[in-house]
Design a protein around this nucleic acid. Sequence first.
DNA 1: ATGGTGGTCGAACCA
Length: 260
Amino acid sequence: MKIATWNINGVKARIENLVAWLKECDPDVACLQELKSIDEGVPRERLEELGYHVETHGQKGFNGVAILSKKTPDEVNRGLPGDDGDEQSRFIEAVFSTEKGVVRICCLYLPNGNPVDSEKYPYKLRWMERLQRFAEDRLALEEPLVLAGDYNVIPEPVDCHDPKVWEGDALFLPQTRAAFRKLENLGFTDALRSVNDKAETYTFWDYQAGAWQKNNGIRIDHLMLSPEAASRLKSAYVEPHVRAWEKPSDHVPVIVELDV
DNA sequence: ATGGTGGTCGAACCA
C-alpha cells in the first residue's frame, strides 16, 4: 500500500497540480493538509473521477485536512481528541480493511506555533500533548498505524539547510523537538529517517528569496509508524520534483510503501 | 537590516 502526505497550500489553487500528481504517483491513500476551504468548496468531483474516495475536515480560509483513498474507509473520525473547544480543523483519521487485516491512517496538520511569544506557541505544545495521548491510546490497539502530516517540526539540525536561521523558531525550539522525540520514544518510527539519513533531504522550501533554487529547505512533513507498520515498511521517499512545477505548493509529497 | 512570496478573501491573517 502506497501512502502519501502532502501539504497542498490551498486545494482550490492547487487542484490541477493535485490531479496531475495523483495520476503520476497513483497512491492508495493520500493525506492532504492546508485545504484552506470548507468541505463544500473542495473540488471533489475532480478527485472522484480519478477513483478516489474523499473524506474532508475543512474550515473557511485556513487549515483543513483530507484523506483520499482508493478503497472506502470502514471508519472515519474528525478532530484530535482532548479539547472540545478547539475549532481548528487539523486532524482526520481513517481505518481501512486490507487483505492482511487493517491499517489505520491519521492525517494531521500540526500548528506552526510562531510567533513564539504569542498564544500560538503554547497552543502548539498543547496540541502535541494531545497527539501524544492519542498516540498512546492507539498504540494499545497494536495495529499498523501511520501518523502522517505536516508536523511543523524540524526534528534535528540535519533536517534544515542552515540551523542557525531556525534558532528560536517554533519549528526548531528545544521544547518542540523534545515533544516530537516523545512520540518516537513511545515506539513510533520516523519512516523517512529510518531509510534515509542523508543530509539535504527536505520537504518544504519557502516561496521567498529563491529558497528552492538554493535548496534552502527544511524537513517538516513526516510519516510516523507504529511498530506494526514499521515492520512492514518497504520504502520511504520524497518527491521533490513537484516543487519545480508551475504554481507549486511550498511543500512536496512524502511517500511510504507498506506491506499491509 | 530589510524584504523577499503566496492563498484566502475582500482588510488582514496565516505561513
